[in-house]
Amino acid sequence: MGEMTNTPAIRIEGAQKRYGKAGGFTAVSDVSLTVTAGSIHGLLGPNGAGKTTTLKMLLGLVRPSGGTFEILGEPAGPAVRARVGFLPEQPYFSPLLTATELLMLHGRLSGMAPADVSARAGELLARVGLEGRGTARLGTFSRGMLQRVGIAQALVASPEVVVLDEPASGLDPVGQRDVRNIMMSLAEGGTTVLLSSHQLSEVEAVCDEVTILNRGIVAAEGAIDDLLNVAGRTSIRARGDAPALPADVQSLMEDVAVSGGVWVFSVPDSAVRAVVDILDDNGWAIEAVVPKRQSLEEYFAHMLEQPHDADAAKGVA
């Protein structure tokens, strides 16, 4: 990762957003997060968790009801936003503009000279897999191509901080891999990336740290392994021809899944050695023994079962 500094790239303290007066809708109740400079920080949460509203408040698109917002150590006003690139969720651009015209617009809005933007546009379009499409109107672009050109516009002014809202949305697996590579190369170059997503695989692959939002509050924050690993349990994957696992193992296992002779289940950490020995003695092949990790979906489902108050939700982490 890139060079770290003491000043956080992004700092949000006590963000709140209420729509309407008394009794109105509260989109964000209390969100605080700190993004280390040069890191890739994931902002996770189910739909309606407040991710996009938090980003919009940070970027001046929505007026906060409360809280403080800083980017690169400065209040998050228009001036410092010159150093930020933003990819909105499901970006849509004027269908009558060409890809190059779009990048020219955003480059010039960022104060770049036309010649510099022109050179940068060609380089960026190649980087996002749109080489040779600069003169094509955006109205002819597919959803995935719009996503790619959206990423290019976010990067056109070589920002120090990049905020990406669901960047893999609409992309095929190759496109998703390309986006991951772009994020990692940005971080290697010292750029800070704040990635908002509800796709665990996307976040897991690139993020150093995550903040999980639920119902407008921070439900958890930290390293993704720390958040999703289930303390005290280990996951075992074994293959065998027998119709059932040995009885001694059955008494210890939970979360069982079976497919094509492959069994996946979890056991207490203290029983791992014994379970592996039993399986081995009974002719089973052990394919994997890894710390038990819950899926993001399981994690969210668990969170949604928690009491609906901030203190209890924060206790999830």
Binding site: L61, E89, Q90
Partner: peptide, 14 residues
């Protein structure tokens, strides 16, 4: 409605 101005106003644009 189409959110085309998000990326514009998220810049140094008043």
């Amino acid at each position: 409605e189409r959110r085309t101005l998000y990326s514009v106003l998220a810049r140094d644009v008043r």
